[in-house]
Simulated scan of single mutants.
Amino acid sequence: MRNIKWQGLIAILLLLSTRLSAQAPMNDDGPVQMADALHANGKIYAVVAVVVLIVVGILIYLIRLDRKITKLENEA
């Protein structure tokens, strides 16, 4: 039974990896067009702000969760 779970997990991971290889190769010669366009329009700062907010939110959530788990462990 245990081997079937591992085989299923490996099969799923292999199927997901084929989607990752379907991307177009990047040229090392030219600049990244999306980053240049975002920087030229001034929207890169909005993208960075959103990413920072998401990371900070995840960190705060994990810290609060750790405190709750520690409190439950101490009560038991």
Rank of each mutant, 00 (worst) to 15 (best):
N3S: 14
V32N: 04
T70L: 10
I58H: 07
A35V: 15
G8W: 01
A35C: 04
G42W: 04
K71G: 01
K68F: 07
R64W: 04
A40T: 08
R64E: 10
E75P: 09
V56I: 15
V48D: 06
L65G: 01
Q33M: 02
V32F: 12
N74C: 05
R64Q: 06
L72F: 11
L16N: 11
V47D: 12
V32T: 06
T70H: 14
M1E: 07
I10K: 06
K43E: 13
G30F: 11
M26H: 08
A40G: 07
P25L: 08
M26E: 14
D29V: 11
V48K: 00
L72M: 15
L9T: 14
H39S: 11
E73T: 04
A11N: 06
L20R: 01
N27Q: 04
I60K: 02
L53C: 02
P31C: 02
L20N: 07
L16Q: 10
I4L: 14
A46S: 12
K68D: 13
I12Q: 05
E73L: 13
I60L: 15
E75T: 06
D66Q: 09
W6C: 00
A37R: 09
I58F: 11
Y61M: 10
I12Y: 03
E75S: 15
P31V: 04
R2I: 09
I4R: 08
M1G: 06
Y61R: 13
E75V: 13
E73F: 02
M1D: 09
Q33S: 11
I54F: 06
R19Q: 15
A40R: 06
T70C: 12
V50I: 11
N27E: 08
G30L: 08
I69V: 09
A24E: 09
I10Q: 13
V47Y: 10
V56R: 10
V56C: 10
L20T: 08
L13Q: 08
Y61L: 04
V55P: 02
I54E: 03
L59T: 14
R19V: 15
G42S: 05
S17I: 06
L9N: 03
L13R: 06
L38T: 00
N3P: 10
